[in-house]
């Protein structure tokens, strides 16, 4: 059963100054699925991820050719509101980055940014997001405490809650579990599987087992090229490309 495409890259090239980090990437990302991006370090996974919600705009000297569409709309097209795009396409970073404020204020930050003022609505959103991020039970008694007092795994789940609170459509996760212990990691993996009912998830991971466990589709990047993009089951059992096979079986990377 094929889901409709939500994000579509067509012949996407990206340059950091002279250096080409993405080479003609074309890829259809299906809705309500988890898509994993794998590949050796420096192959352009984070770059591709950041291109999707235009976080690359912050890097000076980036040029982009080709096209990415979100629900058919060109995200680099004229008249597109970047803040709207980032509200629809949320991001969780590799290192947990809660703001130095209370747990509550962290989660309420996004909704407040987008104009939610009502205390009741905020309370609701905060609770609901913390529940979705599977951290509610751990923090419900200390919502007013600083978010920096949480453990790394809790902080990362808080960041997921914070991203969910703006009610996005797509969630981008850049090695969201790489700094975490196995228990927090498995919590976040379970969470992703739970979340895909309502969200589309694109995740970068260095962990092949993780991709195999949670992703529906997997994309293998190498030196800025998309070598192979297929159903995870297919890719991990019968990779089409020799390079994919070498990488998956651990012959390099």
């Amino acid at each position: 059963m094929e889901e409709p495409t939500i994000l579509k890259a067509e012949g996407l090239d990206l340059f950091y100054g002279e250096h080409q980090a993405l080479k003609s990437i074309s890829m259809d990302i299906p809705e309500h699925r988890i898509t994993a991006l794998i590949g050796p370090s420096g192959c352009g996974k984070s770059t591709f991820l950041k291109t999707i919600n235009r976080m690359n705009d912050l890097v000076p000297g980036v040029t982009i050719k080709g096209k990415i569409t979100y629900h058919g709309q060109d995200i680099y097209g004229p008249g597109l509101d970047v803040t709207w795009l980032r509200k629809r396409i949320g991001m969780v970073f590799q290192k947990p980055n809660p703001f130095p404020m209370s747990i509550y204020d962290n989660v309420a930050y996004g909704p407040r940014t987008h104009g939610v003022r009502s205390r009741k609505k905020l309370d609701e959103l905060v609770e609901q997001s913390l529940r979705s991020a599977a951290i509610w039970d751990e923090v419900k008694d200390r919502l007013k405490k600083s978010a920096l007092s949480l453990s790394g795994g809790q902080q990362q789940r808080l960041c997921i809650a914070r991203a969910l609170a703006v009610e996005p459509d797509v969630l981008l996760m850049d090695e969201a579990t790489s700094a975490l212990d196995p228990i927090s990691t498995s919590k976040i993996e379970d969470l992703s599987t739970e979340l895909k009912k309502n969200y589309t998830i694109v995740m970068v991971t260095h962990n092949m087992q993780q991709a195999a466990r949670v992703a529906d589709k997997t994309a293998f990047f190498l030196l800025g090229e998309l070598v192979e993009f297929d159903d995870t089951v297919q890719m991990f059992s019968k990779p089409r490309d020799k390079r994919t096979e070498d990488y998956i079986t651990g012959r390099f990377g």
């Binding site: 980055n97 930050y109 940014t113 960041c159 914070r162």
Partner: peptide, 13 residues
């Protein structure tokens, strides 16, 4: 930290 700025902009600020 730059990560605060990214976090905030990433939420659509």
């Amino acid at each position: 930290p730059q990560s605060y700025r990214e976090g905030s902009l990433g939420l659509g600020s």
